[in-house]
Design a protein around this nucleic acid. Sequence first.
DNA 1: CCCGGCGAATAGACATTGTCTAAAGCAAGC
DNA 2: GCTTGCTTTAGACAATGTCTATTCGCCGGG
Lengths: 138, 138
Amino acid sequence: MSDLLERLRGRGWRMTAQRRVVAEVLDGEHVHLTADEVHARAVAKLPEISRATVYNTLGELVSLGEVLEVSTDQRAKRYDPNAHQPHHHLVCAQCGAIRDVHPVGNPLKDLPDSERFGFTVSDVEVTYRGVCPNCAAA
Amino acid sequence: MSDLLERLRGRGWRMTAQRRVVAEVLDGEHVHLTADEVHARAVAKLPEISRATVYNTLGELVSLGEVLEVSTDQRAKRYDPNAHQPHHHLVCAQCGAIRDVHPVGNPLKDLPDSERFGFTVSDVEVTYRGVCPNCAAA
DNA sequence: CCCGGCGAATAGACATTGTCTAAAGCAAGC
DNA sequence: GCTTGCTTTAGACAATGTCTATTCGCCGGG
């Protein structure tokens, strides 16, 4: 969204064609892409963009809190543009499809002090695993 | 534990020095080692053990349900010998230390049907993140 | 409107983690 | 002690990510 580009410009981002393209890719489809998938789509719009730039830009977007990094499998990190609404993930164990979900309740409350071992717990990440309708049908 | 070796033998495992060493490493310290850490400790006991064997053996132990694979960061997988009691993890965002924790409540119940998108949800993995006492003191 | 400084992009080497293969080794039953 | 075929081995390969030195080009000052 140009919203995103505006916010970034406001934070002193130097605007370049490459960064614009990466932002467009993330904004265009609300899915969970890997860095290399982002790169592939960026290349389609701007053939000379390099892999390092995509990685750098994604890293910056994560630091700025505009995009979330999620690791639902232990292969590639995925990037979730839905950073402004807290949510968790539901992953198909067979095809890897990912859906954003919003469980009720607050799992942070479910961790008693006696189970915190002196840690300052600030965040919790919940990943549900199962089989999606497509894979169940097959 | 020889318990573990007995169970494995009972399942038709051919017993080799390499497998014994990997089992000993996992059993010796109840921590969460990466595959390469397991390999390093295995080499200390059996210098000629190869990396592939450690990876293979770990994979077999996981398939047999004797060890759990956990991915608390998106770097290396870690192996948790505490496979027979369900639990979740608390990770230090700074040093990466991992503790097993047992939250109250069942997060599976917190996911309403309307948020399941037709998936058959079978499992949930909860990772708490925070700062451990050591890192907080530093 | 043009320049120059410095932030950003590039290509490609490098690092880490994990997988695969073909050949040699060895556990276990006979 | 043989034989069988499961295991191990070394190293190549693959996937993902990081780093570096160099070149590029955005944008504020003139």
